Simulated assay, not measured.
Amino acid sequence: MIQRLKKWLVGYQSAPGTDDEKWIPRLQEGPIPKHVAIIMDGNGRWAKKRGMPRVAGHRAGMKSVRNVTRAADDLGEIEALTLYSFSTENWKRPKDEVNFLMSLPEEFIRTDLDELVERNIQVRMLGNKEGLPAHTLEAIGKFEEATADNTGMILNFAMNYGSRFEIIEATRRIIDEVKSGKLDRDDVDENVFNEFLLTATLPEPDLMIRTSGEVRISNFMLWQLAYSELWFTDVHWPDFGREKFFEAIQDFQRRSRRYGAV
């Protein structure tokens, strides 16, 4: 099974025939989302369809992480790419699968850190670090330290992340600030609330993509997605490559964003 997966990965191309000369200059003529958020769904179903264990789908999905990160960076105007890597609900999955997912940052740092540094990409983690294994936190820390001075696109991994938890924690912190007299109750508005969220330093997502045919947002950036454009595809995440990503950007450019106005 492992040899079969390795053989497949060696020959795998996420978007056969993608022509960057066709896509990138044309897309750069239109509006590019400053922040793209992606729910990377369908790894397990992709693997099951091929008679492989679920972890094989997660490993294959790493290749899509790499390809989409490159595509977003190559467009040149995307400031942040947030990837929903592990939700607070994902702890309910089988222990072996969770352990494998917790090992992926260590593997990713071995295979991709040099290129991320070369591309001037800054890596961040969005989520609750409490409860994550020490080896996972160590790998994430190495990513953040090695790319801290990079000034290009932010690659944001939402790990052990749940939006309801984030909103509750932000509310608690605001209450503490009001009680201590550091913040006046009447000053609390949307802008102030944003400052207490984990995404305080990021623009709100202009575009949210979800793969694998599910049409919901699954406790992901509930506050931040209020006016985001949503794009859904039936393609499983391991098969989502540059061309599909560019298609999503192209569809975004066709939309009229009125933010409640006529």
Rank of each mutant, 00 (worst) to 15 (best):
residue 254 R to A: 08
residue 170 A to C: 13
residue 174 I to S: 08
residue 133 P to A: 00
residue 192 V to F: 05
residue 211 T to I: 01
residue 4 R to L: 06
residue 72 A to I: 02
residue 200 A to L: 03
residue 37 A to L: 06
residue 228 S to T: 01
residue 86 F to M: 14
residue 207 L to E: 04
residue 161 Y to E: 00
residue 228 S to A: 15
residue 189 D to C: 06
residue 179 K to L: 14
residue 187 D to L: 14
residue 71 A to S: 15
residue 8 W to E: 11
residue 80 A to S: 03
residue 197 L to H: 07
residue 244 K to H: 13
residue 196 F to G: 10
residue 240 F to P: 10
residue 130 E to K: 15
residue 40 M to K: 09
residue 44 G to Y: 04
residue 240 F to D: 07
residue 166 E to F: 07
residue 180 S to I: 02
residue 147 T to I: 05
residue 204 E to G: 00
residue 235 V to I: 15
residue 190 E to C: 06
residue 169 E to M: 02
residue 69 T to D: 08
residue 262 V to P: 06
residue 157 F to G: 01
residue 145 E to K: 14
residue 186 D to G: 07
residue 252 F to S: 10
residue 135 H to Q: 15
residue 137 L to T: 05
residue 211 T to P: 06
residue 226 A to R: 07
residue 251 D to C: 05
residue 115 E to Q: 14
residue 258 R to A: 03
residue 111 T to D: 13
residue 69 T to G: 05
residue 207 L to H: 04
residue 164 R to M: 03
residue 213 G to R: 12
residue 248 A to W: 07
residue 84 Y to R: 05
residue 216 R to S: 09
residue 75 L to W: 02
residue 148 A to K: 14
residue 231 W to V: 12
residue 72 A to Y: 10
residue 200 A to W: 15
residue 89 E to V: 14
residue 136 T to C: 12
residue 142 K to H: 03
residue 208 M to G: 04
residue 174 I to H: 03
residue 197 L to Q: 12
residue 37 A to H: 02
residue 200 A to F: 09
residue 58 H to C: 11
residue 85 S to C: 15
residue 108 F to Q: 03
residue 188 V to M: 08
residue 69 T to Y: 02
residue 128 N to Q: 03
residue 190 E to V: 14
residue 202 L to N: 09
residue 228 S to R: 02
residue 95 K to N: 07
residue 226 A to Y: 06
residue 22 K to T: 13
residue 11 G to Y: 08
residue 179 K to N: 14
residue 219 N to D: 14
residue 31 P to K: 10
residue 15 A to V: 10
residue 198 L to F: 01
residue 101 L to S: 05
residue 96 D to G: 10
residue 258 R to T: 11
residue 92 K to A: 15
residue 260 G to L: 00
residue 143 F to P: 05
residue 72 A to H: 04
residue 121 I to S: 09
residue 63 K to N: 07
residue 20 D to F: 03
residue 39 I to E: 05
residue 230 L to H: 09
residue 48 K to S: 14
residue 165 F to R: 14
residue 148 A to R: 12
residue 252 F to W: 04
residue 152 G to L: 01
residue 77 E to T: 06
residue 83 L to K: 05
residue 216 R to E: 09
residue 208 M to W: 03
residue 245 F to S: 08
residue 90 N to H: 08
residue 49 K to R: 13
residue 45 R to V: 02
residue 255 R to Q: 07
residue 109 I to K: 10
residue 26 R to I: 00
residue 53 P to D: 02
residue 93 R to F: 13
residue 224 Q to I: 00
residue 168 I to D: 06
residue 208 M to V: 15
residue 262 V to C: 10
residue 66 R to H: 11
residue 147 T to N: 03
residue 248 A to I: 09
residue 188 V to N: 04
residue 107 E to F: 01
residue 77 E to C: 10
residue 11 G to E: 02
residue 212 S to L: 09
residue 35 H to K: 00
residue 156 N to I: 04
